[in-house]
């Protein structure tokens, strides 16, 4: 399978990579267990920064589309096809809706929830 990225597209490069690999899995072009090129190889072939490819691989690993096997490299996950259908954005919205409903039931106002949310995000960012 071939990756084709547009460096002038408004879509971030790592997103283009993630989407194309997911599309490859969904279409059956990338089968479970298939090896993927190393971060360095793909970055050099596409003439992009290796951090871009590393970020794409990290997101794909988080979504269960690929799995890293240490020095042996990255491979397509056995359940990649099912995991590709998993919509992280929808999952986040559902989780946040539940949390916000619970907080509102406890009497918290919108601005209090917003401030607390920002505080938690900023604290997490500082810790990382």
């Amino acid at each position: 399978m071939e990756i084709d990225i547009d460096i002038e597209s408004p879509i971030p490069l790592f997103n283009q990579l993630v989407e194309q690999i997911k599309r490859g899995v969904t279409k059956g072009q990338l089968l479970p267990g298939a090896p993927l090129p190393s971060i360095r190889q793909l970055a050099n072939d596409l003439a992009v920064n290796s951090k871009t490819v590393a970020k794409a691989y990290k997101l794909l690993e988080r979504d269960g589309v690929i799995e890293s096997k240490g020095y042996r490299g990255s491979f397509i996950h056995q359940s990649a096809k099912q995991n590709c259908h998993f919509d992280i954005n929808q999952w986040l919205i559902d989780k946040l809706t539940d949390a916000v409903s619970l907080l509102k039931k406890s009497g918290a106002t919108n601005s209090e929830i917003r401030n607390a949310f920002n505080h938690v995000i900023n604290t997490q960012q500082e810790q990382n």
Binding site: M1, I3, D4, D6, I7, G24, P35, P37, D45, L46
Partner: peptide, 11 residues
């Protein structure tokens, strides 16, 4: 060219 291509086959 703005499009860049690469194979997903490891070498």
């Amino acid at each position: 060219r703005t499009h860049r291509k690469a194979s997903l086959t490891p070498r």
